[in-house]
Nucleic acid binder design. Structure first.
Lengths: 350, 350
DNA sequence: GTGAAAGCGCTAACAA
DNA sequence: TTGTTAGCGCTTTCAC
């Protein structure tokens, strides 16, 4: 029975003030690293803090500050189910954290368009904004805009696709190389000993997430399934109609396709091709993102597996991180790590 | 650019008091459903609340209350990696939420022993405890103890294994039937067209989670892989040595085992059998719970896939739920749904 | 450089 | 049945 009776109240700034023999205001100054305190006094206060094992009550601090956090999400403006889902998660969270002094908003920016993104970032009112979560491509001008934001005290997190060369504070999303590797392993094992070609559907090689998935995919295919012939990526720009249009030609050119990796937001086009060609002997297919459409396809055996990232987790995580940065409190990395989810028909959440 | 300028401060009880023309104390009474307020006044206050769209600031409320939450976890006392990991997550969270006025503790109770569990539940000081999270078997006496706890205002959540016939407030854990189904699908597809027998390793059929996994497993095997012959469960009581001891005999009796489902905490025994018999032509194996041992096995191709539940998520979820119940605020079901994680070597978190 | 005092949104005595 | 007031832990003028 290890049930402790840990009932002693935690020390407050009053205790610190008393022990350090200073006023509350001075303790506060030290705590918030504000200027105008003698070295000696700072040291005395810090000693008291350490001795008493003080940890500040963030809730009380925020209450006193009356501070309101303003965070903005920047998302691509094209429409697909994954974005819809992200958007709805933001909308949901926005409501439920109103009373936690946190305001959320989002801006849509033309997809795969670095200039538009950089412009949008320039528009941000740095005085009124505490954090920005960006889902978009990485280019020099985008990096400059990010640097500008950060220089003005705005926290920047990259979302879904990393922008590693920039100075973002954090990346919230899956490891896309690993996701590609996972897709390859799954597809390879499901296909088994058969030989043939593999078609890879992607959005744009300009998008870092798409690129990375392809990298990981090729790596594992080469290593573990050398008998499979991986075709060049079919770039669908996440446009359902384009993909649907390209499919017949691609299949005609490559009669021996036994597997498909739908690595970006191209499920809609692919699935509608399947549905319109019911006689077509469908290859094994692994797709990305669990959405109403892909769930349905999983249920109807149009898809064999789906690799996904939890959009709710993504936005909660981004917000938690932006808030942690704003409060300068540590981040629980384990909690913020976005999992590479694998879904079969059997383990789909209901 | 949908970036709203939603800067107007949220209404407080002061606003309500003013609009309803009552004092703060009365608003507080209504808000907390305390007695001693005239029907008419209650109605007036509630109208003001609705009109202003008031939402209470929980942080401020808790600060004023000076309330400290006491939650206790009850875990089986046997030792395996999953329990170790759960324990360490509790330990971790315990530290990080000290300053959120929440105290965590845990009690270990003999595994698979309903009497010991019921006793432990009886020991709980209901006056000092706000919530209990139970990982244990479901029996009549356990149900009675739970009813007693709840009658005394203690929130009860079942953890990992549900106790559905009881009146627990919430179940925090995966859908174990679905987990079994998932294992079957994965194993079946990885095995491919070959025929043979499948060995199922379990802990105890008394444990609801183990039972449910087997149910789901059998269901999908019968439906999708009728050519595979599923053997009766080998009950290892989650005892590594027992399992290791039973393996040789079982394999001798069933020479055609081409797949193994390690459905409970028996990985240690199974893996050590593999390691001690390197010549043994290992069948395809799907196991449960991502731990140091199973990660290692995945990396070394001793395991083909691992089905898991995130222990950090499990304990954070349990705590969030107990707190939500204590504050009578709603629960975000999506956030609390524990995923059935599938891990291959490729998507293991680093 | 430092301190006193008011106040953030809410609760809990204690009065009336 | 209702109101007044002090105070939770912290921040922030403003004065010394």
């Amino acid at each position: 029975m290890t049930q402790d009776t840990d009932t002693k109240a935690a020390p407050t700034i009053n205790d610190i003030a008393r022990v350090a023999e200073v006023s509350l205001a001075t303790v506060d100054r030290v705590l918030n690293a504000r200027p105008g305190v003698r070295e000696k006094t700072v040291a005395r206060v810090n000693k008291a803090i350490a001795d008493l094992g003080y940890v500040r009550d963030t809730a009380a601090a925020n209450l006193a500050r009356g501070r309101i956090y303003n965070f903005v999400f920047i998302l691509p403006s094209n429409h697909n189910e994954f974005l819809t889902s992200l958007e709805s998660q933001i909308e949901q969270l926005k409501q439920s954290i109103r009373h936690e002094r946190t305001r959320l908003s989002f801006v849509r920016v033309a997809a795969f368009d670095p200039v538009a993104l950089a412009n949008a970032l320039e528009q941000i009112d740095t005085a009124r904004t505490d954090g920005v979560a960006i889902f978009g491509p990485e280019t020099p001008s985008v990096r400059d805009s990010i640097a500008h934001l950060r220089a003005n005290g705005v926290t920047v997190v990259s979302l879904v696709a990393d922008i590693p060369s920039s100075e973002r504070d954090f990346y919230v999303g899956i490891d896309n190389i690993a996701a590609g590797r996972t897709a390859a392993q799954l597809l390879g094992r499901f296909i088994g000993p058969r030989e043939g070609s593999i078609l890879v559907l992607t959005g744009s090689m300009l998008a870092r997430d798409h690129l990375e998935r392809r990298l990981g995919f090729d790596e594992v295919m080469a290593r573990d399934f050398p008998k499979l012939n991986i075709l060049a990526s079919l770039e669908g720009r996440d446009d359902p109609e384009l993909i649907e249009k390209l499919m017949p030609g691609t299949l005609a050119d490559n009669p021996n396709i036994i597997g498909i990796y739908s690595s970006a937001a191209g499920n809609e086009g692919l699935l509608s091709f399947f549905k319109k060609n019911p006689d077509f002997q469908r290859p094994t297919v692994v797709a990305h993102e669990l959405t109403p459409l892909s769930r349905d396809a999983l249920n109807n055996q149009l898809l064999d597996a789906v690799i996904s990232q939890d959009s709710g987790h993504l936005v909660r995580s981004a917000v938690r991180i932006m808030r942690a940065k704003a409060d300068s409190v540590p981040i629980n990395a384990a909690q913020e790590r976005i999992r590479i989810d694998i879904y079969l028909k059997e383990n789909m959440p209901s």
